[in-house]
């Protein structure tokens, strides 16, 4: 019998294989805490590794996030203008808008943390990826101790200053894009399910780009799409498992075109709505439903080189007042 220091290796192997079977049957009850503990062991060296990997992908990557073309820059400018109009509209509807305008005259208030928004952004770093290509998730170095919870939305972090961060309602909407939401969260780490993961699904809106002229069905005849009749199209976006998302069940009458946008539609909040998710890159007939279309969406964020993110901490959550 083969032995090492008095322990028969056959026994060791038998116990190991038995453990494997037990862990398989136990499912997430064992897998979740075990993975969480292992993340603590991994977090320091993988943080450095992810820095190198994302730097490499940023330099040589080919999965979106490249520099903007003149047309894209123009489209973003247009979107910014639309968003500014929307913010102005929302301000008019808010009962305390006058009070906030007065507050803004105070220098300290202006450059302090924004009190008018109902979410806080928690900065986090991506510290590890997934070891196998079947899923598309990342590990972020922020957990429940910092306020993160499963289901929290995560955006890119393209803002430079804390002042910009504080002015969520103006800057984040235009500057950042949704990258996913948190899955399992531990005390100090959390799993970020990316928008391209097969298990990702979120309510969203299709926002038709007014720069692309088109006719849409009116009450009696077809009319051009304008700012007045350009209603957001509610839908559900699902990760396709490799590089984008799929939106199904969009009526062909909506006349969605390549170049239109997919934006968030998160209940309970105004300011998390209309955060960009991606751009429509293909429109095709839905094979399962006649008269409906299927949209292929490319994410706005460069997920291959994802390094710094914001976790959106909603202030309506129970116990969130203390954080504010």
């Amino acid at each position: 019998m083969a032995k090492r220091d008095g322990i028969p290796l056959q026994w060791v192997l038998t116990v190991m294989l038995g453990l494997s079977i037990l862990m398989s049957v136990a499912g997430q009850g064992v897998a979740r805490p075990a993975r969480e503990m292992f993340q603590y062991v991994m977090i320091a060296p993988t943080d450095i590794g992810m820095y190198l990997a994302t730097t490499f992908r940023r330099a040589f990557g080919d999965e979106g996030g490249q520099g903007l073309s003149a047309e894209q820059a123009e489209a973003i400018n247009l979107r910014q203008r639309l968003l500014k109009n929307e913010v102005a509209y929302l301000r008019g509807r808010l009962a305390d808008s006058e009070q906030r305008v007065r507050d803004l005259t105070n220098f300290q208030e202006m450059f302090g943390p924004a009190k008018s928004v109902n979410c806080v952004l928690i900065p986090a770093r991506v510290v590890a990826g997934e070891s196998l290509p079947y899923g598309d998730s990342r590990t972020v170095g922020v957990g429940e101790r910092q306020g993160a919870r499963a289901g929290d939305r995560v955006t890119t972090r393209r803002l430079v200053t804390d002042r910009a961060k504080a002015m969520v309602k103006l800057n984040v909407l235009g500057a950042n894009a949704l990258v996913g939401y948190l899955g399992d969260t531990g005390a100090f780490t959390a799993k970020l399910i990316l928008v391209t993961d097969r298990n990702f699904h979120t309510p969203a809106f299709v926002d038709r780009d007014l720069a692309n002229a088109r006719m849409i069905p009116g009450p009696t005849k077809e009319v051009p799409l304008t700012g007045k009749n350009n209603e957001l199209i509610p839908c559900t976006a699902v990760g396709d498992g490799w590089s984008g998302m799929v939106v199904r069940g969009i009526s062909a009458d909506k006349r969605v075109q390549v170049g239109d946008w997919l934006v968030t539609s998160i209940p309970k909040t105004v300011f998390l709505n209309k955060v960009p998710i991606g751009t429509v890159v293909e429109v095709r007939d839905d094979p399962q439903q006649a008269g409906f279309q299927e949209l292929i969406i490319a994410p706005d964020a460069d997920l291959a080189a994802l390094r710094r993110v914001y976790i959106v901490y909603p202030l309506w959550r129970e116990g969130a007042v203390e954080r504010r």
Binding site: M16, L17, M23, Q28, F38, Y134, S137, K191, R198
Partner: peptide, 27 residues
């Protein structure tokens, strides 16, 4: 092989279903 499979299972969440179990990869 078991140790290597366990390490891989601990860092691979994606797969069939919403989240994968821990034991099969080591096995």
């Amino acid at each position: 092989g078991w140790i290597l499979g366990l390490a891989l299972g601990l860092t691979a969440v994606g797969g069939p279903g919403t989240a994968t179990s821990l034991g099969p990869m080591s096995l």
